[in-house]
């Protein structure tokens, strides 16, 4: 009864603006990674390695790589460009915008963390980006990348968070829908021609976790 009176008195007050809360990210539990240790091992050989991270800045990853490897990390969030082009309906501009954010200096990077960026790109953009990454990679440098194996519409972006030397967890955020460009293993090898696929593991999430190494 008291609650009813409370409700009545509240309804008599002027209507307040409704607060729209930000989309809640969905976090998955940590899963084991067979490929992440290879990445760490490859970088552990370098003194003060230079890592290019093509995903959004993730504080946990920065802290992890920094503490493990005492490295230099440059963050260039390509997903920001992907989302802006998807919202504006200008997919043709995406390739140029992505390449503008990737360094050009040849053999200057020890590792590239691509995450699943290739899933969101059309074939010509995938090829142009892969060429650039191979170009900037130092000999013995590595590319860490995820490829979705299931065709369909992508409605989220996935943040990969390093949860330990052999574990990753993911957090997904809403995205403007994009068609996933599925690459079969043969296409992947062609895309990164000149690099050696050191390890590739199909995860339960139907995503292939892969590491390439430049000879």
């Amino acid at each position: 009864m008291a609650g009813l009176f409370k409700w009545r008195s509240r309804s008599a007050e002027p209507v307040e603006t409704v607060e729209v809360s930000a989309p809640v990210p969905v976090e998955e539990p940590a899963t084991a990674s067979k490929v992440l240790p290879k990445l760490l091992a490859a970088l552990g050989r370098q003194s003060h390695p230079f890592i290019l991270d093509l995903g959004p800045v993730v504080g946990d990853n920065i802290a992890f790589f920094g503490e493990q490897l005492a490295c230099k990390i440059r963050v260039e969030d390509l997903f920001e460009e992907i989302e802006q082009c998807a919202r504006a309906g200008t997919p043709d501009a995406l390739g140029q915008r992505l390449l503008a954010r990737v360094p050009e200096t040849p053999a200057s990077v020890d590792a590239v963390l691509c995450w699943d960026v290739f899933d969101y790109l059309d074939r010509p953009t995938q090829q142009a980006l892969a060429r650039r990454l191979i170009h900037i990679l130092r000999p013995a440098g590595v590319i860490y990348v995820f490829f979705g194996a299931k065709a369909g519409e992508l409605t989220v972006y996935t943040r990969y968070i390093v949860a330990g030397p052999e574990a990753l967890r993911t957090r997904s955020y809403p995205a403007t829908p994009t068609q996933r460009q599925v690459l079969v293993p043969r296409d992947v090898e062609r895309l990164f021609q000149g690099l050696k696929m050191t390890e590739s593991v199909l995860l339960k999430s139907n995503t292939r976790e892969t590491i390439f190494r430049k000879p």
């Binding site: 240790p37 290879k38 760490l40 091992a41 490859a42 970088l43 552990g44 050989r45 370098q46 003194s47 003060h48 390695p49 920065i62 790589f65 920094g66 503490e67 493990q68 490897l69 005492a70 490295c71 230099k72 990390i73 440059r74 963050v75 030397p165 050191t198 190494r213």
Partner: peptide, 17 residues
């Protein structure tokens, strides 16, 4: 970019690939 080089130190040295 973020440079986290330790003062006077080097990489933690993970296991070789």
């Amino acid at each position: 970019s973020i440079d986290m080089q330790r003062q006077g130190g080097t990489s933690a040295g993970a296991k070789p690939i």
